[in-house]
Design a binder for these strands. Structure first.
Lengths: 168, 168
DNA sequence: TCCAAACCCTTGGATGTCCTAGTATATTGC
DNA sequence: GCAATATACTAGGACATCCAAGGGTTTGGA
């Protein structure tokens, strides 16, 4: 994965699409492919920064979410909904975070079906440190200009709403 | 993962970042998180369309790449470079595509280290059908306006170049 | 009241991605 | 020409994601 390619493979794909008579969808194809690749790059950067903390992005997201919850605790299904991932992914993340003593499971006081996830003191501390690292080394150096950031937030926000992520 | 949330969780995160004094990186954080989520939505749509063909996105990408190669064959390392994934991911995809008789491995004529991946007739046919389906059901209904598509291609293209994907 | 339907979490299985070797083949440099 | 280095692919392992299913708990309508 090392050396840069001489030419943009996505631009090449777009040209191939046009050459085959699919010019009407070549540009959206390129945009979507670019989003996929950009996500891959960003995820790699994030994971690199989190590795020293013994965290992955999935686990960090859960820690961060809990750290913003007033009580420091959330039901599993709530976390699943807010993180927009399958419940089994939350189970997986909690298993590992619990082994690392960063979160703890506790029964819901009134609903026997529900399990609460609670941040431990170490979990809260680690979340703070990891967030500071991400802010400094990823979000603070995104490479996107302020106007591009605003545009991305707006365009992708509309896309996500249309996709049924939220109603607001 | 079903019901839409009442409010945009990424906008909430952005507000949390600002409230904690990280306003300088709150917007890039939101943009990056939105890219991650958008990729997840798009990937799910793509996989849904490809499922009837017995393909995943990773396998489809490889088929599509081969279908655009003049000779219909590419060395594994070339495919790895163009798809921007780890060589082991290509090995994995080729293993499964080969089992499905959509591609075949063959030795490189002059370099004993290299393995060529070649499309079979069925592979070429399936690639065509899958591409038509994706064009109709995903790329043709991306939900992005033409101006947004152009903007995404440009902004993410710059990002990818700066990240070292290509030099062009 | 009570049983069926709905809901919550977990387990097990399939995929994909990456990393770290390990094996085989080419290239390079002395 | 031969040893050292580089390159190509693969095997094994760690993680994450999703789906399908199963077992326990609640809720709601007959």
């Amino acid at each position: 994965m090392g050396t840069p390619l001489p030419r943009d493979p996505i631009a090449d794909a777009q040209r191939n699409w046009e050459r085959h008579g699919w010019g009407d969808v070549a540009a959206p194809m390129a945009a979507i492919t670019a989003i996929m690749r950009t996500q891959q790059i960003l995820l790699a950067r994030i994971e690199t920064v989190l590795k020293p903390f013994g965290l992955t992005f999935a686990r960090y997201e859960l820690l961060a979410l809990l750290s913003f919850a007033r009580s420091g605790a959330l039901p599993m299904n709530k976390a699943s909904a807010l993180l927009q991932v399958h419940p089994t992914s939350v189970t997986n993340a909690v298993d590992r975070l619990e082994k690392a003593a960063l979160v703890a499971r506790s029964p819901h006081p009134t609903d026997g079906r529900t399990t609460l996830i609670e941040l431990t003191a170490e979990g809260r501390t680690l979340a703070k440190k990891a967030t500071a690292a991400l802010n400094a080394e990823v979000f603070g150096k995104s490479g996107f200009g302020p106007d591009d950031v605003d545009h991305l937030i707006r365009v992708l926000g509309t896309f996500r709403r249309d996709a049924g992520d939220f109603e607001d």
